[in-house]
Design a protein around this nucleic acid. Sequence first.
DNA 1: AGGGGTGCTTGAGCACAGGT
DNA 2: ACCTGTGCTCAAGCACCCCT
Length: 516
Amino acid sequence: MKDIKPNEKLQLAFISFIQRVLSEGDFVATYKYALLNAIADICIEKLDVSTNESLKIEHSLLAEKILQLYWHHAMPFSNLKSGADALLKQNSGAQSKVISVLYECQQNNIRSLGQLKRSSYWNESYRAALNTLKTGPLWRLQILAKQEECFLYPHNKKPQYIELKPGIAACFRRFYDLVVYLSKNAWLQKIQSIKYNQALIGPQSKLESFLFGEDRQSLAKVKPLLVDLQKNQCFYCQKPFKNDVEIDHFIPFSRYSNDLAHNFVAAHRRCNNNKRDFLASYEHRDNWIESNLVKHNQVIESELSSYFDCSADQSIAVSNWAYEVARSNHAKLWHSIDTFVDSAPIAPVLTFKKKHGEREDKIETNKTEIIAELEPQLYYFPNLKIACGHFKTGDESDAEYMDIPDGVGKVDPNKHFFARASGNSMNGGKSPIFDGDLLLLEFITPESAGSLQNQTVAIERLDSAGDSQYLLRDIKKATDENGNSCYQLIAKNPDYETLVADESMKTFARLKKHLC
DNA sequence: AGGGGTGCTTGAGCACAGGT
DNA sequence: ACCTGTGCTCAAGCACCCCT
């Protein structure tokens, strides 16, 4: 729930603005498509992006991302029919500066972006991208129909970063697929529209896969390593390989089209095909974290850093984002052949955690020392007021983490969460609940609820505006005046009247523990 | 009405000068 | 050495006008 529900009006305004950028902006070169794509990528690659906060993105990070996005574009495009072989122009005038410098690097036998970063060509390429961004696209992206409209970030040229306005980063995360799809399509059309390119591209071409396709060749480097690390067993079914190994993108390539070294697992062809573009279940995700980001982190980094980006933080951030979106959309997660599980209700967000007593700077210097594990924390929803009075509107936005206090017993981050009581209707009986008390609740569904008789539950209903309202009450089965059985919602405080459950209400969570 | 020529505007590349 | 600002050039898009 964290990060995924920016204000609905803002979401609509965001979508509308992105559409306008692509339709009303003037495009002579393709930089602005790349910039939009770069910002979207960075928003999902960063850990700790909060819903309503602004997000600073360093110009340097954008420049690196731009180089990454243009890397493939700087290779000569071959038209198989005509035999022509040349660089596609990405500017209506002279060739784009970024393409020119990357092309020069490739002509000097730099074969990957990782190699470029370690080479003497890096500085020049990086500066070209940075200068290009700062002289134009950063301040032109938000010029719509000749008018400057700073919806995404203010135009402040002094600091070395742009600052996405509150909620914008969350919108980029929520609508990542859409933004990338739209910007890449517009990018593709722009390249096709440049007259110089038309002779080269011809009437139909494989331009899209050339520009935005994956580098399949590099996967050959991954297979033997992963087969070895996985002890010749399929990542998903744990059964041995029989000449049927395929490399799977754990976070599907269709969802995130940058190859990250930690994102690969070896799987049976059948398992991989059956998984298709689904996210794997939480169980698989835990195993992936344990295997690729903890146990084999260093080996993967040393063996594959020449071919792929190797940031464990980036991988975990992308995985968090992908699972957040899945949960928000109630998507199914693939577990095994033709078997799926729910992504809702609450997926634990994984973060790296230091070993107890370890110094902070070790994270930077020695990643093998980092252990990835579920923090002993649960979600806390400060905006979710569980009413102890009358139904009260609240929402699940702005989730935070809260340490699990001692003595609460066994909890599951998939089910349990914290929220505050609001009001005094449950202030009575043996264990009164006061306004502001912390409640440990367990999410329930009609299927998982079991008998609720004599339990304290949070009930949810929708108000006339469509917002959710919540109320905490004891449940008791009773008989109404017509002799029909019904459920009474009883307040511990006798000053509050007993309500009868109706069809507009649903049980949302049961009270597991009341913490003062 | 439609085609072609002209001039203006815009976004981008590039060279250069001056400041830090 | 690096950054920043300025001015020039170029190609494309567009509006306008004129001619057929």
